[in-house]
Amino acid sequence: MITLHHLEYSQSFRILWLLEELGTEYELKLYNRNADNNLAPDAYKALSPLGTAPVITDENGLVLAESNAVIDYILDQHPDSPLRPAGGSPERADYLFWFHASIGSMMPMQFMDGIFTVLQKRSPFFLRPVISAVLGQAQKLLVQPRMTTILDRLEHDLARHKWLAGDQLTAADITMSYCMASAKQRGFVNDSRPGCMRWLEQMEATPSYQSAMAKDGRETMVFSFD
């Protein structure tokens, strides 16, 4: 049986949602962040050399990190699941794009934006105007154009079908959940992005998402940089 080692306010929520959607048996172990620095506790870091969430263990001795690797490993055990469209299907290309864009494009941009924000807020008071001006310009040049491009693509695809890879929920939607919730939290997604807002609403209304949130025990899955 798979054990999900779930760190609060982390990307491991996606694995929790995946397991709930599959309806498979699993064990859940919850970990809180250290109160002094918001980092994972030592017990969590000891699970994997990366010390990052998510991490799963399996009764065969496997220890596996990295979100998409974990998702693929779990779906390999459920080959008939519609959560991963088959090769050659009309949904496959969109599925692959969004499955990997979540980690390859969207999260790095938001992480960079979060770091810029933290540096502005925590810079010395007498230097803050200069530092804020420089970092604010960097956000405009490095983050906003790329986020605009990917959100435009999201709006385009969500105008064509209900979910990211067609009219049925897939693992691409699950892996994008943290990115999209974070994008809304950071102000990238708002009422000017009706397709994205609709997607977030239907995500939150999905029974498996709701049961995952209940087991998570928190009002949001997203860690705030602010």
Rank of each mutant, 00 (worst) to 15 (best):
T3K: 14
H6Y: 15
L7Y: 12
Y9V: 03
Y9I: 03
S10G: 13
Q11S: 13
Q11P: 01
I15T: 11
L16I: 07
W17L: 07
E21V: 07
L22K: 03
Y26N: 03
E27F: 05
E27H: 12
L28D: 13
L28Y: 09
Y31C: 07
N32V: 00
N32H: 08
N38V: 01
P41R: 08
P41G: 14
D42Y: 03
L47E: 04
S48L: 09
P49Y: 06
T52H: 10
V55D: 03
I56S: 07
T57S: 14
V63F: 05
E66G: 04
E66K: 13
A69L: 01
A69C: 04
V70F: 05
I71P: 01
I71F: 12
I74V: 14
Q77K: 11
H78G: 06
S81C: 09
R84D: 01
R84Y: 00
G87A: 11
R92E: 00
R92G: 00
A93R: 13
W98P: 02
F99Y: 13
F99W: 06
S102E: 08
S102W: 02
S105N: 10
M106P: 03
M109H: 14
M109Q: 15
D113I: 00
D113Q: 10
G114T: 09
G114F: 10
G114P: 12
F116K: 01
V118R: 15
V118A: 15
L119A: 15
R122F: 13
P124F: 07
P124W: 10
F125R: 15
F126H: 14
R128G: 12
V130L: 15
V130K: 14
I131K: 12
Q137C: 01
Q139V: 13
K140V: 05
L141G: 02
L142I: 07
V143E: 12
Q144R: 11
P145H: 08
M147P: 06
L151D: 00
L158A: 06
K162D: 04
W163V: 03
W163M: 03
L164I: 01
G166D: 04
T170G: 02
D173F: 10
I174H: 02
M176K: 04
S177A: 15
A183W: 04
Q185C: 04
F188I: 08
F188E: 04
V189H: 05
D191Y: 01
D191G: 11
C196M: 13
W199K: 04
L200I: 10
E204Y: 04
S208T: 02
Y209C: 14
S211K: 15
A212E: 03
D216E: 15
R218L: 10
E219C: 02
T220W: 06
T220Q: 11
T220H: 13
M221P: 11
S224K: 14
D226N: 12
D226K: 12
